[in-house]
C-alpha cells in the first residue's frame, strides 16, 4: 500500500515537472524565434515576459468551447483526449537517471512505438468528427504523414536494439556506455539522422508541419476546435516533442552517462549528476526543434511523403544491415 502511494506521488511529480517544462517551452519558442527574426518576443507579462505561459494557461479556460452543430459529438469530444492520454503515458517508461524510472518495463521501446501508433487515431477521428471538408482532408494528410514516418522511426530504433541487445531503455544506456565511443550516434550516424528527421515528422513539427500551416487547409484537423480542446492538442504535441527528445538522448546520445573517452580527459566530470547530463541533452534537442522551425521553409505534402518512403526507409535498412554485419563478423 505504501509503495502504491509512493508510485502515485512519483507520477504526480513527473507529470507536474513535464507540464511546467511544456508551458515554458512555448515561451522559449516564442523568444527564440523572435530573436531569430530580429525581434524580442513576449516582453509584457512579467519581467521579460516570463509569466506569459501562465497568462496563456489562464486565458485558455475562459474561451468558449464551440462544438459545431454538424459534428459527431461524442468522438469530437473524445479525440483530443485520445491523443493526450496516449502521449503522456510514454512518460512512465523513460529513465531520467540510473535509479529513477516510473515503470521499468522490459519492452520500454516497443511501448513507446505502440502508444504512438494508437495516438494516430486521435488525429484521424478529430478530422472525421469535425464533419467539414477541410478538417477531414487535413486529418487524413496528417495521419498519413505520421504513419509514413513511423516505419523510419522503428527502423532506426531497430539498429539501436541490435547494437545493445535489449529493449529496456535502462539497459540500452548501460550497453551504450560500455562501447568505445560511448554514444550510439557515432557508429550509427545514418540511423541517428534518420531518427532526427522521423522525430520531426512524427510530432508534426517544422519543416513537416503542414497541418498547422495557416495558409494550407486553414488549420487542418484542428480547424473546428477551440479553447481547451485546442490546447489539449498542442499540449500533446509538446509532450511528444519531449518524448522524442528523451528517446534521442537515451538511445543515441548516452542518456545520463558521459562517454568514457571524455571523462579520461576531464576527470572532474564524474561529479556532475546524471540528471543534469540528461537534461542538457534533452534541452539541446528541443533547441534544435525550435531552431529548425525558425530556419527552414515548409515541405509540400508529396515531398514530405517522398522523403518518408523513398529516402528514409532505404537509409534505415542500410544502417541496420551495416550494424548486423559488423556485429556478426567482428
Amino acid at each position: 500500500m505504501l509503495e502504491f502511494l509512493l508510485m502515485i506521488i512519483k507520477t504526480m511529480i513527473v507529470f507536474a515537472i513535464v507540464l511546467a517544462h511544456v508551458a515554458y517551452t512555448t515561451y522559449a519558442e516564442r523568444k527564440i524565434i523572435g530573436r531569430a527574426q530580429a525581434r524580442m518576443g513576449p516582453m509584457e507579462v512579467g519581467p521579460h515576459g516570463l509569466l506569459q505561459p501562465i497568462a496563456d494557461f489562464i486565458k485558455i479556460f475562459f474561451k468558449e468551447d464551440i462544438i459545431p452543430v454538424k459534428s459527431e459529438k461524442f468522438i469530437f469530444q473524445i479525440a483530443p483526449l485520445i491523443v493526450l492520454v496516449f502521449t503522456m503515458v510514454n512518460l512512465t517508461v523513460i529513465p531520467f537517471t540510473a535509479n529513477f524510472v516510473l515503470a521499468d518495463l522490459n519492452i520500454g521501446l516497443l511501448f513507446i512505438l505502440a502508444s504512438a501508433s494508437i495516438a494516430v487515431y486521435g488525429i484521424i477521428l478529430a478530422g472525421w468528427a469535425s464533419n467539414s471538408k477541410y478538417s477531414f482532408l487535413g486529418g487524413l494528410r496528417s495521419a498519413s504523414q505520421v504513419l509514413s514516418y513511423e516505419i523510419a522511426l522503428a527502423l532506426s530504433l531497430a539498429g539501436v536494439v541490435l547494437a545493445s541487445g535489449s529493449l529496456n531503455l535502462k539497459d540500452i544506456v548501460i550497453a551504450q556506455h560500455n562501447t568505445i565511443f560511448g554514444i550510439y550516434a557515432i557508429p550509427q550516424i545514418i540511423g541517428f539522422v534518420v531518427f532526427i528527421v522521423a522525430a520531426f515528422a512524427e510530432t508534426n513539427r517544422a519543416p513537416f508541419d503542414l497541418p498547422e500551416a495557416e495558409t494550407e487547409l486553414v488549420a487542418g484537423y484542428l480547424t473546428e476546435y477551440s479553447a481547451f480542446r485546442y490546447a489539449l492538442f498542442f499540449l500533446a504535441e509538446y509532450v511528444a516533442m519531449y518524448i522524442m527528445a528523451s528517446l534521442c538522448a537515451l538511445c543515441f546520445l548516452g542518456g545520463w552517462t558521459v562517454p568514457k573517452f571524455i571523462t579520461h580527459i576531464f576527470p572532474f566530470l564524474h561529479k556532475v549528476p546524471g540528471l543534469l547530463w540528461f537534461a542538457i541533452k534533452v534541452y539541446a534537442f528541443i533547441f534544435l526543434y525550435i531552431w529548425v522551425r525558425a530556419t527552414f521553409p515548409r515541405y509540400r505534402f508529396d515531398q514530405l511523403l517522398n522523403i518518408g518512403w523513398k529516402v528514409l526507409i532505404p537509409a534505415g535498412i542500410i544502417n541496420l544491415i551495416i550494424i548486423a554485419f559488423v556485429k556478426k563478423f567482428h
Binding site: N106, I107, F111, L113, S117, I118, V120, Y121, L147
Partner: peptide
C-alpha cells in the same frame, strides 16, 4: 507475453485497423 501485447497494439490496432478505417 509482453511482446505479443505490443505487437497487437502496433500492428493490429495501429496498422490493420487504420486500413479498415
Amino acid at each position: 507475453a509482453e511482446f505479443l501485447a505490443m505487437v497487437q497494439l502496433i500492428v493490429y490496432a495501429g496498422a490493420i485497423l487504420v486500413m479498415f478505417l
